[in-house]
Amino acid sequence: MAYKGTITLAITGASGSAYALRLLQCLLAAEYKVYVLISSAARVVLDTETGFKLPGSPDAATAILVEKFNAKEGQLKVFGKEQWFSPVASGSAAPKQMIVCPCSTGTLAAISQGMSDNLIERAADVVIKERGQLILVPRETPFSTIHLANMHSLSQMGVTIMPAAPGFYHNPESIDDLIDFMVGRMLDHLGIEQAIMPRWGYQ
């Protein structure tokens, strides 16, 4: 099947794993192929915050996510942190769009310094060097001067910094409404049509 495009979704150990699950659901529903990168800390946070358990094996994690979101054959692929021969590790094969959601401040720091110690950091480094689109969704408060300096440095490189800070002007009635606010904004920046969040002035 021909998909509309391919996007790399990296999930790190910051709080806010529900954003990642909803974003993945929306990307698949929009008929995009998704490469998923999940840190060890992210699996712990996923279980803690949502009760969703993902095994460490990339193939087993792929199977579980495919079943959970009813993905089509070949539409979703999970890669391990040291699968250096995966498409995302090379500028000749990596998708031009990548989002790290949620993005820990440790991952933020590593990306800002070009420290490719795992596949998430390498994939982000590839997108930056290939002049692709990289979106980082940090979830931390307050931000230290170090965090802000790293975000400023990345922003100057063209990286979009989108803190997980949902608005309230759409009168949210549930946590899901707050999640959809942020995921809707992520989809907007990825250039993917969405109807999960009402736009300003159109409520």
Rank of each mutant, 00 (worst) to 15 (best):
I38K: 04
F52N: 01
L148Q: 02
I38V: 15
P95W: 08
P102H: 04
D47P: 02
A41E: 15
P142D: 11
L119V: 11
K96M: 13
A123H: 08
D59F: 09
F85G: 06
I135L: 15
W84G: 05
S144E: 03
I135H: 10
F69P: 01
G114R: 07
S116V: 08
F85P: 00
A89E: 04
E130K: 13
I99W: 04
G114F: 06
S57T: 09
L119E: 11
A63D: 12
F143V: 05
V100A: 08
M98Q: 15
Q83C: 10
A149S: 14
L76H: 02
L76K: 02
G106Y: 00
V137M: 14
I64S: 02
S116I: 06
K77G: 02
A42E: 02
K77F: 03
P95G: 14
S104V: 00
F79C: 05
D47R: 10
R122K: 10
T145D: 09
A41P: 05
A109S: 13
V66C: 10
S39K: 07
L134K: 13
I146T: 08
G51W: 09
V100N: 06
P138V: 00
V34K: 00
L148E: 00
A123D: 07
E130C: 14
K129H: 03
D59K: 08
T50F: 12
V66H: 01
G56D: 04
T50W: 07
S39T: 14
V78H: 05
Y32N: 00
L37C: 13
L54W: 06
I146M: 11
I64W: 02
K68T: 12
D117C: 11
G51T: 08
T145N: 10
S116A: 15
Y35K: 01
N150H: 12
I38A: 09
E82D: 13
L148I: 12
Y32P: 00
M115H: 14
A30R: 03
E82M: 10
E31F: 04
G91K: 01
E121M: 13
Q83T: 09
A94S: 15
F85E: 10
I111M: 06
E73Q: 13
L148D: 00
G74C: 01
S86C: 15
S40P: 06
K129A: 09
I111V: 15
I99D: 04
A110W: 00
T107M: 05
L136G: 05
T107D: 02
A110L: 15
A89W: 05
T62P: 03
K96S: 15
F79H: 14
T50L: 15
F52C: 01
M151T: 03
Q83S: 11
E140V: 06
D59Q: 12
Q97G: 04
E121L: 14
S39D: 06
G56V: 07
K53T: 13
G106N: 10
L108P: 01
G132R: 12
F79Q: 09
F143K: 02
N118C: 12
L65E: 00
K81S: 13
V36D: 04
T141S: 14
A60W: 03
V66Y: 01
T145F: 04
A29Q: 08
L37V: 07
V78Q: 03
